[in-house]
Computed example of a mutant assay.
Amino acid sequence: MTAGGAAPSVRSVVVDAPGEHRLVTGPRPQPGPGEVRIAVHAAGVCASDRELYDGTRAEGYVRYPVTPGHEWAGTVDAVGEGVGPVGTDGPGGPGGTPTSLVGRKVVAEGFRACLHCERCREGATSLCTGGYDETGFTQPGAFADALVVPARLLHLLPDDADLRAAALLEPAAVVAAAVLAARPGAAERIAVLGAGTLGMLAVQLLAAYSPAELLVIDPRPGRAELARTMGATHARRPGAEDSFGGPGASAGYDLVVETAGAPGTAHDACMLARRGGQVVLTGMFEAGAQGIDPVHLSVSQLTVRSVFGASPAAWSYAVRAFGSGLLDPAPLITHELPLTAFGEAVGLVGSGDPAVGKVLLRP
């Protein structure tokens, strides 16, 4: 094992049960065979973390007690037995001059897929039938000074990468999965429902396909304006004909990407699509959300896809877009808090304050 000069003990947030958390200090975790240890630089707090804390996450998708944190970026500071340097049998594949992983800036996939089931063997690891297992929900996450993950899940970042911004590559990978599923074409009319983190990242990736129109729908004028700076052609409120800074828009979109997870947005997304159009659902819906009208779905011959998590291909897509400058999550960050302020961070995420964008914890 190769180790850095980090402190002999580390802190981590532990959620023992819904509504109960504590900050604990203990020995640094040691990477086992095939694992690496990460010095966490920044970790994003999202609505799923709020669900974990409130106890509203679907049964089977959290295991208490747990250290949350599935959106993160950091630096490798130790490697376990059998983890080769980059360029040999280590992350990044063969070729190139072998260099040590220690000191490299990285992110990593969250799903701990079995790699043996039929879905995994066809490359759809987010559909693994071996049982749900994910960093920050069933395995220790990144609301901590240090994190241990399987080396096979790593994605290397450029040496000059902004690790604050890179902490948002997990939601970017989810959006990338939606884009890969939709395969948008140039000059298509595209609508994005929701201007939260997922929606803003979707706008950036979709703008690269040169759509004829890229509409963002969100009730918050400030967020809609930010979306226009990221590539949206115009934006409007849900159900409104008037738009923020552009012409009005009507139904008939070639592609609709839903990112809000609000009670009515799956239904609304289908109503926005043209006949024969595509709808991709990325938001996490709660029980009681409005259903999709099966008559409209059938008569309009819509293609509806859903996204939960991201495959390795989607992660690679997001990391490449970030490394090339095509994707810039940094403007979405509005709050940065220390690890000791976990309770405040969760409160911000669930506050409904339109001024709250992405909240980061900085160990």
Rank of each mutant, 00 (worst) to 15 (best):
K105N: 13
I38F: 12
L361S: 09
V79F: 07
D16M: 02
E225D: 12
G44K: 01
A341Y: 04
D254C: 03
V76I: 15
G74F: 01
G252Y: 13
D77F: 14
F111T: 12
E241G: 12
V307T: 01
F111L: 10
R121K: 10
A58P: 00
R119T: 01
C128G: 02
A260C: 08
G74N: 11
P29A: 12
V106C: 01
G352E: 04
A195G: 10
D162F: 12
E134Q: 06
A78K: 11
S48G: 07
S316H: 12
L101Q: 09
R152I: 04
A260M: 07
A6M: 10
G87P: 08
A289Q: 02
A172S: 15
V106S: 01
V256F: 10
Q204W: 09
T2Q: 13
E20L: 14
P27F: 10
S210V: 11
L154W: 11
A232Y: 09
H116K: 10
V295Q: 12
M284C: 01
R112Y: 14
Y61F: 15
V148M: 04
E118I: 00
G246K: 06
V174P: 03
G92S: 07
V83K: 07
P294W: 11
S100D: 15
P338G: 05
F342R: 00
P94L: 07
T25M: 04
G110F: 00
G92T: 10
A310D: 10
T334C: 02
P354I: 07
G69C: 06
V66H: 01
G80F: 13
G44C: 08
A355S: 14
G261C: 08
D162L: 12
V148E: 03
C128I: 03
G130S: 05
G291P: 06
R50Q: 09
P29R: 13
P338R: 09
V203S: 07
T303G: 03
A227Q: 02
D242N: 04
H267Q: 13
G95N: 08
Q301K: 13
M200R: 08
E225F: 05
V66Q: 02
P68K: 05
V83Y: 12
A73N: 09
R63S: 14
A269S: 08
